[in-house]
Design a protein around this nucleic acid. Structure first.
Length: 271
DNA sequence: ACGCTCTCCTGGCCGC
DNA sequence: TGCGGCCAGGAGAGCG
């Protein structure tokens, strides 16, 4: 899926075009994604003004006049503006038509995404309330990972992917950030020294920021809201590069499975 | 509290 | 060309 940079890329692509428009029409073509689609969704949304689009973790929040449309892209969700005359194709599950005729279309082959309307504070909803801090948030202490990881025995890679600890880091950027920090992904979280954990947080922030600048990473499915792919794939140092040469030494990129997820690293550069 | 496993669903790719 | 098996970017639920 889209991790934080991909969701942020979609948000930025949509915000200026959608903000200030009213929702004119909503079409749902499937009964459920990760959760059932509320049959009342169209009537909940139609007529409402889109005041802004924000992001929390990997969720997009369409801040409406009355409530919030919460949308998660799951593993394969694509949210984009398409030609209003474009007929729905396979896996085009939801259309949101705006009052100026723009068509916002949600496509999701694997249907792990989520679309739900919340009429009260979204941040106290079951879906958002347990989430950890934003990695790019201004108020995150440099030693945050150090203090949170002191008793944690799981692999550091799984630790930084835990959304209760830190949001937005998915499988790709976890491997990339650990490479940038020179930390072996298999190490227990509690084994990191203060200095290493500070460098790791900085690496996470740098990798995410660079990926946002590149418009995200397109491996296969991901598309920006204008339909173009993201360009961060060219900058991936380890992810998906099993057996290939490390960009920083003469070694080969290794592959292991941690928490049932593919993990890539350079054994020489990461200790 | 923690950490691991399973599960939702489909498509693409690989090897036979 | 077809088919079975395996893999995939997320994350909540359940269990020990």
């Amino acid at each position: 899926m889209p991790e934080l940079p991909e969701v942020e890329t979609v948000r930025r692509g949509l915000e200026l075009l959608v903000k200030g428009r009213h929702i004119a029409h909503v079409i749902c073509r499937v009964p459920k994604l990760r959760l059932p689609l509320d049959p009342h969704l169209p009537e909940q949304l139609v007529g409402q003004l889109v005041q802004s689009i924000s992001r929390r973790a990997k969720y997009l929040l369409f801040n409406l006049q009355e409530g919030t449309l919460l949308l998660h892209l799951g593993m394969s969700g694509v949210l984009r503006l398409v030609d209003p005359d474009c007929p729905p194709a396979k896996h085009d599950h939801v259309d949101i038509i705006l009052d100026d005729g723009q068509l916002l279309r949600y496509n999701d082959a694997r249907r792990f995404g989520l679309i739900i309307y919340l009429n009260s504070d979204p941040f106290s909803s079951r879906l958002l309330q347990h989430l950890g801090p934003e990695p790019l948030g201004a108020d995150l202490p440099g030693d945050y990972l150090f203090t949170r990881s002191r008793k944690r025995q799981l692999a550091i890679k799984n630790f930084i992917m835990d959304q209760k600890i830190l949001v937005g880091v998915g499988n790709i950027y976890a491997s990339e950030a650990l490479f940038a920090a020179g930390v072996d992904p298999r190490r227990q979280a509690k084994s990191l020294k203060r200095k290493e954990s500070i460098k790791l947080l900085q690496s996470i922030q740098a990798v995410l920021a660079e990926a946002i600048s590149a418009g995200g990473t397109t491996l296969k499915d991901f598309r920006r809201s204008d339909g173009k792919p993201g360009y961060f794939k060219q900058q991936l140092q380890v992810y998906g590069r099993k057996g290939e040469g490390c960009h920083q030494c003469e070694g080969q990129i290794q592959h292991v499975v941690l928490g049932q997820r593919s993990t890539f690293f350079c054994a020489a550069c990461q200790k």
